[in-house]
């Protein structure tokens, strides 16, 4: 099996090298981590390599961008805090709205990417999108001020 995997990797890396890529292949272990919180699935994937680097990504209920860490304590702590926050969030009656909003934000990012990569968007339209994002940003800050804080172990990083 590993021999076929190696061969498959050779096909991919040969094509990528011909495209001009520099490739470093590192032996590593991939872990899929799943939690079931009262029927609500929270899942992560992380990769450990022998250089001691960890690449962690949340895949469910919605994806969180991949981040690099340098020790296992950091990875476990991130998952632990994330899990505690989801346990809190699940008890909220807004959980479904929260997930729906998040999903729509992700879809909007994908649509924006298509717009950017496939069309020559006029500057006026870009300015309008920036205005709308500023409005959303202001709305998020207002919402924060009018909401009760429920998690205190760690300070929010982005708001």
């Amino acid at each position: 099996m590993s021999r076929l995997l190696d061969a498959e990797l050779t096909i991919q890396t040969m094509k990528l090298r011909q495209m001009g890529a520099k490739i470093k292949t590192i032996n590593s272990k991939m872990c899929y981590v799943k939690f079931d919180i009262s029927g609500f699935e929270v899942a992560y994937v992380y990769n450990i390599n022998k250089d001691g680097n960890y690449f962690l990504e949340r895949i469910k209920p919605y994806p969180l961008a991949i981040r690099e860490f340098y020790d296992e304590e950091q990875v476990i702590e991130i998952i632990e805090i994330d899990l505690e926050q989801f346990k809190n969030a699940i008890n909220s009656h807004n959980i479904q709205s929260f997930i729906d909003i998040n999903r729509r934000l992700h879809q909007s990012i994908k649509k924006f990417e298509d717009l950017f990569l496939y069309y020559n968007v006029p500057q006026s339209e870009c300015d309008r999108i920036i205005d709308l994002l500023d409005q959303i940003d202001a709305e998020l800050k207002d919402t924060k001020l009018s909401s009760n804080r429920i998690y205190f172990r760690k300070e929010p990083e982005n708001i």
């Binding site: 021999r3 190696d6 061969a7 498959e8 050779t10 096909i11 040969m14």
Partner: peptide, 14 residues
């Protein structure tokens, strides 16, 4: 043989 095939076949497929 097996080693040779594992080295040659991927590049042939490309």
């Amino acid at each position: 043989n097996v080693t040779t095939i594992l080295l040659v076949v991927p590049v042939t497929i490309v």
